[in-house]
């Protein structure tokens, strides 16, 4: 921290990034975007999600380092920001691991629309319920009559 009397400290802190650097970063970002779109037309199998995420992460890195000035920022700010990604990773890993163990059973493979069989079953049970109710009613009626 600078003292009051000292002149330049605390006043000259703007570090504008150069225009050629900005333009080249933008060019790289555009090229990577075209690359991601282009790779979608090739069949690379299960690797494609990895490739797509790697390209996206490179793009994110470029934006963070130069457009967000993280490359020139205070180390503390960098730590604060990047630590959030560590927590996101923790969150994703634990939740995914958990759902891998449990949620598969809850996710039906075939869409179960109301089939005829189940409708019949429902009707059956309804009839049964109605029958038992009427039986009970007659029993009660008989009871009242005997009384």
């Amino acid at each position: 921290m600078s003292e009051h009397g000292q002149s330049k400290d605390g006043y000259d802190f703007a570090h504008p990034i150069s225009i050629p650097l900005m333009l080249s970063v933008f060019g790289a970002l555009l090229a990577l975007t075209i690359l991601t779109v282009a790779q979608a037309s090739f069949d690379i199998g299960s690797l494609d999600i990895v490739i797509v995420m790697v390209i996206a992460t490179i793009k994110a890195g470029l934006v963070m380092a130069f457009f967000m000035h993280l490359a020139y920022d205070k180390p503390f700010n960098v730590i604060v920001f990047l630590s959030s990604f560590a927590f996101v990773a923790l969150f994703l890993i634990f939740t995914m691991g958990d759902s891998k163990l449990t949620s598969v059973d809850f996710e039906p493979k075939v869409d179960d629309e109301a089939s005829e069989v189940s409708e019949v079953a429902v009707v059956d049970t309804l009839e049964q319920v109605a029958a038992t109710e009427s039986e009970q009613a007659t029993v009660e009626m008989e009871e009242t009559v005997t009384e």
Partner: peptide
């Protein structure tokens, strides 16, 4: 704030913390 730089740095830390909440 003592200096413009101190003012700027405080604000910057604040916005970084906000961006962390956004990412989460």
């Amino acid at each position: 704030f003592d200096t413009p730089e101190q003012q700027f740095d405080s604000g910057k830390l604040g916005i970084w913390l906000f961006l962390v909440t956004e990412i989460l």
